[in-house]
């Protein structure tokens, strides 16, 4: 047990060190959220100003848009981490690590915790950049949102590694990720609330786990921490984290056979 913790920590530090050596990528990863905050969010304000449905009354507010944006960053920030895994697989790193006495779980956790850290930094930056746009939020709400983002990353990042271990090439990886990411994005209500959607689309979106995350983070941003959507999404994501890790560990064993 102690060895597993040390192994995880040692690898986490290693991956963080490598990541911090190329600050360009960290800056580049912030470009998308900045664009959405400053170039897209103002559009929504006008949508609400020109009337629109009563349900859309709140969409002009940054408090409604920022939660969706955070979930979007969580999705796209962690969905593509598998590309790195393909490189590691090809260069024999995964095989070498598998023959050491470090456990598979620690190998995976070292990478996933790096992804979680990156996401938390991005989340913090979105919070800060939203303040000038009129974001009003309490400290407990910030922490609860961050916890929810961690759960999303802990689900999607291992899944991305699992997909990479199956795909084994960048060429195969791209289409697979698009196949998943577009419906996950559009059916979550990240950009526009699904209250605007026709009934069939709303029914379809019920199958998307990220919809519950978006609902929960909107509730948190409203200050409604006791909303049942909050604990429900936490419970759902906790289950998905376990499923995702189990899948990824299994693929890691198969990939080095």
């Amino acid at each position: 047990m102690k060895k597993a913790v040390v192994d995880t920590w040692v690898q986490y530090l290693h991956y963080m060190k490598i990541e911090l050596r190329s600050p360009f990528w960290i800056l580049a990863s912030l470009f998308q959220p900045v664009c959405y905050l400053y170039l897209f969010a103002p559009l929504l304000k006008n949508v609400s100003d020109t009337g629109g449905a009563s349900a859309a009354g709140s969409i002009g507010s940054i408090n409604s848009f920022a939660p969706g944006l955070l979930v979007m960053i969580a999705l796209f920030g962690t969905l593509f981490v598998g590309y790195g895994m393909i490189d590691y697989l090809r260069s024999g790193i995964i095989e070498r690590l598998r023959v050491t006495t470090a456990s598979r779980l620690s190998l995976l956790l070292g990478l996933v915790l790096r992804d979680v850290t990156t996401l938390l930094v991005q989340t913090a930056i979105v919070f800060v950049l939203s303040l000038p746009l009129g974001l009003v939020i309490t400290a407990p709400a910030v922490l609860l949102t961050a916890a929810l983002m961690v759960l999303v990353a802990l689900t999607i990042s291992p899944a991305s590694y699992a997909i990479a271990l199956i795909a084994r090439s960048e060429d195969a990886m791209g289409p697979i990720l698009n196949f998943f990411s577009q419906p996950l994005l559009l059916l979550s209500g990240m950009l526009l609330p699904l209250t605007l959607a026709p009934l069939w689309l709303r029914t379809l979106s019920d199958a998307n786990p990220l919809k519950y995350v978006v609902d929960a983070s909107r509730a948190i941003f409203r200050g409604d921490l006791a909303d049942p959507a909050v604990w429900r999404s936490f419970a759902l994501m906790a289950v998905l984290v376990v499923v995702s890790f189990a899948w990824s560990l299994r693929q890691m064993r198969k990939a080095t056979e």
Partner: peptide
Amino acid sequence: KGGAYEYASGYENLVLQGRL
């Protein structure tokens, strides 16, 4: 294939391996 991390130094690769 070897399996060293490309973006770490040889020394760092050695130390990490020992730690594991």
